[in-house]
Amino acid sequence: MTTPNKVEETLGGAIVHNLPFPRDLDDAALAGLKQMSPLQVEQRYCITYLHSYGQDSPWFAALTNRVLLGSRDPASGYTYANPRGHDMATGQPTDWVVLPDQGRVHAFTVCHFGSEEFLPECPYVLALIEFEGVDTLFLTRLVGVDPAAASLGWIGMRVQARYLRNAKLRPTDVYFMPAIHE
């Protein structure tokens, strides 16, 4: 094996030659470098994470079976619409409970802009859902309303849980639509 005598040239990324630069590097020329415009280069950063849902995993498994779970403190009965392994007040492990299929819109918005990941989906409707007998809310997508006709009248609307047939193990495996029957 021969010892390389130079770094191999490559064709990737930005390639530049002889950017404008003073030929004679005297004091004036070196001082003049402070006037140089900034050089900006692209730096890519892309990571795939292996994310664990940990103790919340049954919640996602339930969605694949068209079931929406919540968490309940066995002592106080305080019920969370989101999974929560331990109760905030007692510190004790919670029990899984099945949430109602229907709830009401507590608050909402129509996103006309968003994070890069969701830009193609704009406009989309986010809503917080309240359930009878449940003490906290649930963030979800609201489908079946006209994003161009947003109205405070949507608050209090009865909505029905719907599930993706092709579940993705994401919280969007469940979404809500206006309930047909009150």
């Binding site: 507590h106 608050a107 918005t109 996103c111 968003g114 986010l126 963030l139 997508r141 919280p171 969007t172």
Partner: peptide
């Protein structure tokens, strides 16, 4: 679900 802080704050506003 659609992570976007302006969306979160807008939900607070509607309420």
């Amino acid at each position: 679900v659609g992570g976007f802080y302006s969306g979160y704050y807008a939900m607070m506003v509607t309420r």
